[in-house]
C-alpha cells in the first residue's frame, strides 16, 4: 500500500506540475517562455549559418570530390581490366599460333630428314652396287687379259721348248697355229 501511495503521490505531483498554471508565475514543465524560444531560434539559426559556411560546405565538397575520385578510379580500373583481358587474349592467341607454327616446322623438318635419309640410303646402296659391279667387271677383264697373256707366254715357251727339243726348223707360223689349236683343245681353266 505504501509503495502504491508513494507512486501515486509522485504521479499526482508530476501531473500537477506538468499542467500549465495560469495566473501564477510558476515554473512548470509545459510553461512556454518567449525568452527561451527567441534564444533557441537565434542559436539554431546562427549555428546553421556558421556550420553551413565553415563545416558543411567543405565537408560535402570533400565528400563529393572523394565520391567522384572513387567513381573515376573504379571506371579506370574497369577500363584497365578490359584492356588487360584483351592483351591476355591476344597473347594466348599468339602463343597458340606460335605453338602451331613450331609444330609445323618440326613436322616439316622431320619429313625432310626422313626423305633425306631414305634418299641417302638408297643412293649409297646404288653406289655400292655400282662399285661392286665395276669391280667385278674389272676383275673379269683382268682375268681375261691375264689368261690371254698366259696363253701367249705358254705358246712362246712351248715353241721354244719344242724347237730346242726336236731341233727342227719348222715354220714358226705353222707351229704356232698347231700349238694354238692344241691349247684351244685344252679345256679352259
Amino acid at each position: 500500500m505504501l509503495i502504491a501511495n508513494i507512486f501515486l503521490a509522485q504521479f499526482y505531483n508530476i501531473i500537477l506540475f506538468i499542467s500549465p498554471q495560469t495566473g501564477e508565475n510558476k515554473d512548470t514543465l509545459l510553461s512556454v517562455e518567449p525568452g527561451l524560444i527567441i534564444w533557441t531560434i537565434l542559436i539554431f539559426i546562427l549555428l546553421v549559418l556558421i556550420l553551413k559556411k565553415y563545416a558543411w560546405k567543405p565537408l560535402l565538397d570533400a565528400l563529393d570530390e572523394r565520391e567522384k575520385g572513387i567513381k573515376d578510379s573504379i571506371e579506370k580500373a574497369e577500363y584497365l581490366k578490359q584492356e588487360a583481358e584483351k592483351i591476355l587474349e591476344e597473347n594466348k592467341k599468339m602463343l597458340a599460333g606460335a605453338d602451331e607454327e613450331s609444330r609445323k616446322i618440326l613436322n616439316e623438318s622431320k619429313q625432310l630428314a626422313n626423305k633425306m635419309r631414305t634418299e641417302l640410303i638408297s643412293k649409297t646402296n646404288d653406289d655400292a652396287a655400282k662399285i661392286l659391279m665395276q669391280a667385278k667387271a674389272e676383275i673379269e677383264r683382268e682375268k681375261i687379259a691375264a689368261l690371254n697373256s698366259l696363253k701367249d707366254e705358254i705358246a712362246d715357251l712351248a715353241v721354244k721348248a719344242a724347237g730346242k727339243i726336236i731341233d727342227e726348223n719348222l715354220d714358226t707360223d705353222k707351229q704356232k697355229k698347231l700349238i694354238e689349236n692344241f691349247i684351244n683343245k685344252i679345256p679352259q681353266n
Binding site: 502504491a4 501515486l8 503521490a9 505531483n13 515554473d27 512548470t28 514543465l29
Partner: peptide, 28 residues
C-alpha cells in the same frame, strides 16, 4: 476503503511538495 485514505495522502504529499525536486531537477 483504502482509496479515500490514499487519495488524501496523495493530495497531502502533493501540497507538501515532496516530489517537487524531480520537477525542480528537469526544469530550467
Amino acid at each position: 476503503t483504502a482509496l479515500p485514505d490514499t487519495l488524501s495522502q496523495v493530495t497531502d504529499a502533493a501540497h507538501n511538495e515532496e516530489g517537487n525536486w524531480i520537477i525542480e531537477h528537469v526544469s530550467d
